[in-house]
Amino acid sequence: MYAQMVKTDSSRLKTLDEMSPEERAFQERIDRGEKIEPKEWMPEGYRKTLIRQVGQHAHSEIVGQLPEGNWITRAPTLERKAILLAKVQDEAGHGLYLYSAAETLGVSRDELLALLHSGKMKYSSIFNYPTLTWADIGAVGWLVDGAAIMNQVQLQKTSYGPYSRAMVRICKEESFHQRQGYDIMMKMAAGSDAQRAMAQDALNRFWYPSLMMFGPSDKDSVHSAQSMAWKIKINTNDELRQKFVDQTVPQAKYLGLTIPDPALAWNEDKGGHDFSEPDWTEFFDVLAGNGPCNKERLGARVKAWNDGAWVRDGLVAHAEKAAARRSGPVAAE
């Protein structure tokens, strides 16, 4: 997902009896469906896990500007260009809400960015894949935003108030993003032979990386169990992946495109599709920094940060001068 394989510092789940009175009261609030707000007591593990998850999610939004930004200057019509600009601007806005949500947990945006730039924090694996044709912009909206929505809709119910409220707002915009992606795919699929081929090629390349977004199966993961107990995570990775496949198969069919999985078939018994697992070796390679665009993506962010240092310094210096002028010459001794 936009946050993948988030660790919790837990080696096993505590029972209510094993918890301190504070921890127990906290867990009971969560179990009752109450929201946790910034100033309230929370276990250190809860706070740290949320910082990892919200931070990774925020990083994904801002790195996610890059593969789509890659086609803004080449968008095929003025309308498509305007829509794509609006969408990418939304993603940056999502980054802003999420960094703000993380700040309520006691970590600054600059600290989180330093962790991203040094490679200590990750962003979603999906943004390390290239956007090679205009159809990829359609596929990113349709599949990548589609997969993101699966995760984010459930996160509206997450236990941490600021994160949950950010998700409510983000979900509204993401569903518009997915529709614009699907709309691009519809035009391409109904277009010339070359456009249809481009659309199929985009689906071929983005299908498995989209399935990887949910992360490997976590049904046996203690981190996921802890996150679910804290309602930082609501569904397992497999549940979300299944939902995504079931939602996407008819959409692909409507487009007349073929999902690149010969094993894909409806399973009456489970009421869902059977499908092939993505290549998890590739997933771990990408996480380790060896995806097709890892160097470019992180490199672009680091370069933007470094090149912009003089701008940030200049703005701070001006603010200090302006404040000094407001307080008047008496301040000088």
Binding site: I72, A300, A309, V311
Partner: peptide
């Protein structure tokens, strides 16, 4: 629009877009 994703601060990325 060439700036998209490359601005010195996030607020400027949004403003430039």
């Amino acid at each position: 629009s060439e700036w998209c994703g490359h601005a010195p601060v996030l607020e400027e990325d949004i403003a430039l877009a």
